[in-house]
């Protein structure tokens, strides 16, 4: 939390470490977070596995060692039936495979980033059709 609290005051993330895709979506942090996170995902057909790319932008992005990903349907009180596999790439990037939305409607992707301090939580609302 130390590092994060310190960084919270800074506005601009270092540009170099972070060049999210043009169609990347900004994740919503649970609380003020120094790391800005983006996701690129294109869920295709329902019930078929898809991949998601995550990028964390900010000075301590390289400190993130581990990311956990899940997704729920708030309206139906269930999550995904499969455990996604997260692979760490360099520069605060993570690749996630085995995401499956098996029902049409509103899904909330949930991301937890574990670095030096307390984990930081993010969400992203996605509509599956």
């Amino acid at each position: 939390m130390r590092v994060l609290a310190f960084l919270a005051g800074l506005s601009a993330a270092p540009a170099l470490a972070c060049a999210p895709d043009p169609d990347a979506l900004a994740l919503t942090p649970e609380a003020t977070a120094s790391l800005v996170a983006y996701a690129t995902l294109a869920p295709g057909r329902l019930s078929q596995p898809f991949e998601m790319q995550l990028v964390f932008c900010g000075e301590d992005a390289p400190a993130i060692q581990r990311v956990e990903v899940s997704a729920i349907m708030p309206a139906h009180q269930h999550g995904m039936n499969y455990e996604p596999v997260v692979t760490a790439l360099d520069d605060g990037r993570f690749s996630v495979s085995g995401m499956v939305f098996h029902m049409p409607g509103s899904w909330q992707v949930q991301v937890a980033a574990f670095g030096d301090g307390e984990p930081v939580f993010y969400t992203l609302e996605v509509e599956a059709r």
Binding site: R45, L46, S47, N81, H102, M103, P104, G105
Partner: peptide, 15 residues
């Protein structure tokens, strides 16, 4: 019905 009976085969293949 189409929440579970989805897609061309009318099933999401899940439980």
């Amino acid at each position: 019905c189409a929440l579970c009976h989805t897609g061309p085969a009318f099933t999401n293949g899940e439980f």
